[in-house]
Design a protein around this nucleic acid. Structure first.
Lengths: 144, 144
DNA sequence: CGGAATCCTTGAAGATACTG
DNA sequence: CAGTATCTTCAAGGATTCCG
């Protein structure tokens, strides 16, 4: 779950983006595209998908059991389901080796890698504002 | 649900990030921070939170009922819950006006705005690769 | 109007057992 | 080893009602 990109961006990238948000009026967007984008974000943002994505991005090719061991708390069922969905979406490849015992390798596609990169901004935000969020929560809880 | 930033970034930002991902070894990360980051991402990536975030970023200050009308499919219960969580995390402010009938205004904080900006990369990815993902799904479904 | 409280349904996910 | 199949639980979330 490392974030190798975090030192490669200028620290105020987000502040700059925020500036644009404040000064530019929002553009209109096709409702059909909007619905599909929402669906994709929902899928992608799902807990296990994100974890598997980051693991494979970090470790490269892994077999089924290896992924299960390194994504803590995931059940065999959810692992299978998550991997199938990701394969279906073109995020990873599933390679079955015709040997006994069976051996199945999983690796991200370029599309999967690009998605991992796309989440970089969110990772940076979370790491940068961790303390701020925790302070806000403590303050909120303190006043009932 | 517009994405005002999409035309402000160079088109190959993601490709560049992808390059770094491929060439740089991952850095180690504090497990405690990792757990908290995961929790934040889970919360943030939740369906309603993202929708409310984008709506408020686009429209500015809105009252309770206005948000409910514009986030299609959200129930009163989930709206209340989502707004409370976001307020607790410091993403938005809740302003109660002492009038009858009551009037409550919601608006993003700077922290909330920065989070919206952080998700820009994911939006861009989803919009850029929408067709690729749909094609991958069709291909996957075609071969059983 | 902006909620809180209650009940209730459904589907997601865990546990377990079995198999090519 | 890498799954599939089945059962069961449990909590997220919808519907409804009531209230300051």
């Amino acid at each position: 779950m490392a974030n190798p990109l975090q030192n490669r961006f200028h620290a105020d990238d987000i502040a700059q983006a925020e500036h644009y948000l404040a000064t530019e009026p929002p553009a209109e967007i096709d409702p059909r595209v909007e619905r599909l984008v929402n669906e994709l974000i929902g899928r992608i943002a799902d807990k296990w998908t994100l974890l598997v994505l980051e693991l494979l991005e970090e470790k490269g090719t892994l077999r089924f059991t290896a992924i299960g061991r390194q994504v803590d708390g995931i059940s065999q069922k959810m692992l299978t389901q998550t991997l199938r969905q990701m394969e279906r979406d073109g995020l990873l490849t599933r390679t079955v080796h015709p040997v006994v015992p069976p051996r199945v390798d999983y690796a991200l596609t370029p599309l999967g890698n690009s998605l991992s990169a796309a989440f970089c901004g969110v990772w940076m935000w979370a790491e940068r504002h961790l303390d701020t969020v925790e302070a806000a929560r403590a303050s909120f809880d303190a006043r009932d």
